[in-house]
Design a protein around this nucleic acid. Sequence first.
DNA 1: CTCGATCCCTGGACGC
DNA 2: TGCGTCCAGGGATCGA
Length: 296
Amino acid sequence: MPELPEVETVVRGLQKSVLGRKILSVWIGKCDFIDNPTEFTRLSGQKIAAIERFGKFMLLRLAPSEVPAEKCSGHATSEEASLLVHLGMTGQLAPSDAEIPFDKHTHVSLTLDDGRELRYTDARRFGRMAYLTAESLAKEIADAGADPLEVGATEFAERVRSRNARIKALLLDQSVFRGVGNIYADESLWRAKIHPARVGSKISVKEAETLRRVLQEILNRAIVMRGSSISDFLDANGEPGEYQRHHRAYGREGKPCYRCRTPIRRIIVAGRSSYFCPKCQSAPRQRKPKRHKAAR
DNA sequence: CTCGATCCCTGGACGC
DNA sequence: TGCGTCCAGGGATCGA
C-alpha cells in the first residue's frame, strides 16, 4: 500500500525514466477513478516538466511543448496544468514498452515521444487521477496537512495536542499530516511507545517530539529501502521495496515484541487495524465511559 | 469536532 | 476445482 516512502520511490524512478518526455496521445479504459476524464485529451502535446511527491500524491507538472518560435506570439494560454495521481491501494504508474500487452487492470496509457507508454494500472481502482489547472491544484494543496518529513517540533506538537481525536486517527488524517498511512503510523507509534488509542490532547510535548523524531527516521529509512512491499507495491521499475523486513509492529499480530517479547496485539482504531505492543505502549488511563465495556 | 458505519473495488486466504 | 465468505485498506460521505 503506497504511503509516503513508496510514493517517493515511484517518483524518483519516474524522474529518471520519463522526465522531460512529451505526451503524444492518451488512452483511457475504465475511468470511474478519474475526476475529469474528458480533460485528459489536454495531455496530448504537453511535456512532463517536473515530477513531485505531495503527501501520497504524485504531481506530474506539465508544460506545453515548444512551438516554433515564430509561431508563438501569444503564449498567454499557458496556465500551468498538472496530472495528479494517487495510487490508492494497488495503483502502479510505470513506463512500459508499447509492444507489451496491457495488464488486465491498466486503465490509462500515455504514449510518450520515445515510443514507450506511461501506464496506470490499478486492480481495485482505489486510486485517483485528475487533470488539474493551477487553480484546482492550489485547492488540493491548501487542503493538505503538514509534510511529516519537514514539520518542525512546535508545529507537530501543536497539530497533535490541539485535537481530541486518537493519535492513530490524527496520523492517518491527510489534512493533519500528508503521506502517513497505516503501516508507518503503527511503526512510529511502536517506536515511540505510544498507544494508538491515546487522545492527541493528552500526548505530552516530550512524547510528541519523540513521535516526530521516530516518524521521520522511519520514513527516511523506508525511502532508502525503496518502501514496503506488503501486497503488490512495485516501484516504477517493477521492483519491490525492502522495508517490510524492518517492520516492528505492522502485520505482526501474536508475534513477540522486538523489545519485550510480549505478543503484538491488533485492535481497530479509527476503523483501521492497529498493531501495537500492549506492554510497551500502555493504554490510555481513562477510556470514554462506555457503559457495557467498562463492566467486567 | 469526532465517531462509526457504509461504500467503492478486486484478489487472496480460508473453509467446505 | 469451485464455490461462498471474509478481509484488506485510503478516502469520501453521511448520520449520530
